[in-house]
Design a protein around this nucleic acid. Structure first.
Ligand code: NAD
Ligand code: NAD
Lengths: 235, 235
DNA sequence: TAGTTACTGTGAATTATGTAACGTTGTGAA
DNA sequence: TTCACAACGTTACATAATTCACAGTAACTA
């Protein structure tokens, strides 16, 4: 049986529409889009107006085809001759990854790492506001650290609800991480960035991203040896 | 520690497999193995001697089949009835991801994040020793911070060669990151853990792992909205 | 205006990664 | 001892991610 091109196209379209959350972009793509946006803004400050996929690919350490595919996902189209308009592309990426009214963030565990993160995000992203910090150490609470006042964890639920916080950052020791995560979710958080070196259990509908520094360092150490070995053999 | 006959067999098998180097273990598997090892050690301190794949899977947030396949990659075999011996499995994972004599690590950029990382790894991993820290700010160098003395970056090449350092951690601002990476590679580093929010260019044979906290936070914020939306629709 | 060129957009092919299935095996019970 | 069974090891399969390849096109040239 031979189908016309139009028929095939229609079939695919209907299948797509019937499928689940129609155009749900993968976590990997979202991550790269966030990277592209930073690179684009950096290019813009250097006076560039347009950029080609291979330029962005080279800056981002990915393939040009990957860049084009990711950009396709946000629904933006460039011009074959001029490439992508930096302004428009930044705008389109923002339309996908930013919430129009912005989102509020809370950080729990104002230790070494927590303070570094607080300091870094202070006033940096207007659409992603760190609105509260918490700790259970009375020496750290009710003082202003890096421009943020750390509240006692006992007030966590109350403040998260009041400030409409939907994203939590977990910087507490691993023994406390699951409890903190449970409290964050109960209070209304739907996304957690977890620095504690254990996977968190959360109900469906809550997204967790783990940053496991120890694991990453062990990976680097392993491949520092292995890729070096591979190189030797080809010499 | 008493090794069974099975463990000795495993040792022989892994030595054979490592020698070839053609079927290299994926970065994802290495990462999970690092996680399994931590979980196993934690189980051991609670008095457990053996563990089944589904138990480890549940703790690690992965599927039992995944656990079995990762463990297959290190060349260890468990018993159908008792599962895996925790001691032996930790030993076999270490044989893959640790260097027998250990590896030396340097950290560049003793700012907020760099100090948090230094503090965290102090005396934690005997096979992964942070041997030197560097900064270009004279207010931070030649003082002892978190048990480490920070050297001026001008001494980077010399000290890295002298201390036989093969792994570098980059915690400097993004403007300086590529220069620092170049110096690390020139001095002999073959692996870099990069916290600066730009991809580093390195020659082949050098492995880079990026930890992009901003990107991760934006991902969390995005999926905090999107997965919540999906949930609503199914209600 | 027609030709040239270099880039985009996108289906198809390829590769990586994860899951399911199932024969195998060691252990404990009858 | 033999059987039943639960969990392993491995292969086959399924899905996700990435790259390839090329048609289509806007600018630029002469
Ligand atoms: N710093 C690093 O480089 C690094 C590397 C890998 C993993 N981590 C992980 O990140 C987390 C934080 O690391 P850190 O170096 O900042 O540790 P830290 O000890 O400096 O800070 C932990 C903070 O959490 C607070 N805390 C403890 N229990 C709490 C609770 N129940 N509720 C609220 N606050 C609580 C403590 O008071 C402290 O301020 C840990 O889980 C650690 O394993 C850190
Ligand atoms: N802290 C965070 O949460 C966070 C989040 C995302 C990204 N980062 C990235 O991590 C890196 C470090 O962040 P931070 O918060 O520690 O910043 P920081 O400013 O506190 O520390 C940077 C340190 O690097 C040193 N430095 C600058 N140039 C140098 C050079 N050429 N050679 C050696 N040392 C040099 C500075 O003296 C300073 O001590 C930055 O690239 C930042 O973008 C940090």
């Amino acid at each position: 049986m031979v189908l016309s091109i139009a028929a095939v196209k229609n079939l695919e379209l209907t299948l797509e529409d019937v499928g689940k959350g129609e155009n749900m972009i993968s976590a990997k793509s979202i991550g790269r889009l966030s990277l592209y946006r930073r690179l684009l803004i950096s290019l813009k400050t250097r006076g560039e107006e347009n950029v080609h996929s291979h330029k962005l690919a080279s800056l981002g350490g990915v393939s040009p085809a990957q860049v084009r595919r990711d950009i396709m996902a946000v629904g933006y189209s460039g011009s074959p001759a001029r490439g992508y308009s930096i302004d428009e592309l930044v705008e389109c990426i923002g339309r996908i990854i930013d919430h129009p009214e912005g989102q509020n963030v809370a950080l729990v565990g104002v230790g070494h790492l927590g303070r570094a993160v607080l300091n870094y995000f202070r006033g940096r992203r207007p659409k992603l506001r760190v609105r509260a910090a918490f700790d259970n150490d009375i020496n750290k609470t009710n003082r202003v650290l890096h421009g943020y006042r750390a509240h006692p964890v006992t007030q966590l639920a109350e403040i998260i609800k009041r400030e409409k916080i939907t994203v939590g950052i977990v910087c507490v020791p691993k023994e406390a991480a699951q409890d903190v995560a449970n409290n964050l979710v109960d209070a209304g958080c739907r996304g957690i960035l977890n620095f504690a070196p254990i996977p968190l259990r959360v109900p469906p509908g809550v997204y967790v991203e783990d940053i496991d520094i120890t694991m990453s360092l062990e990976k680097v150490a392993y491949f520092a040896r292995e890729t070096a070995k591979e190189e030797e053999k080809t010499e």
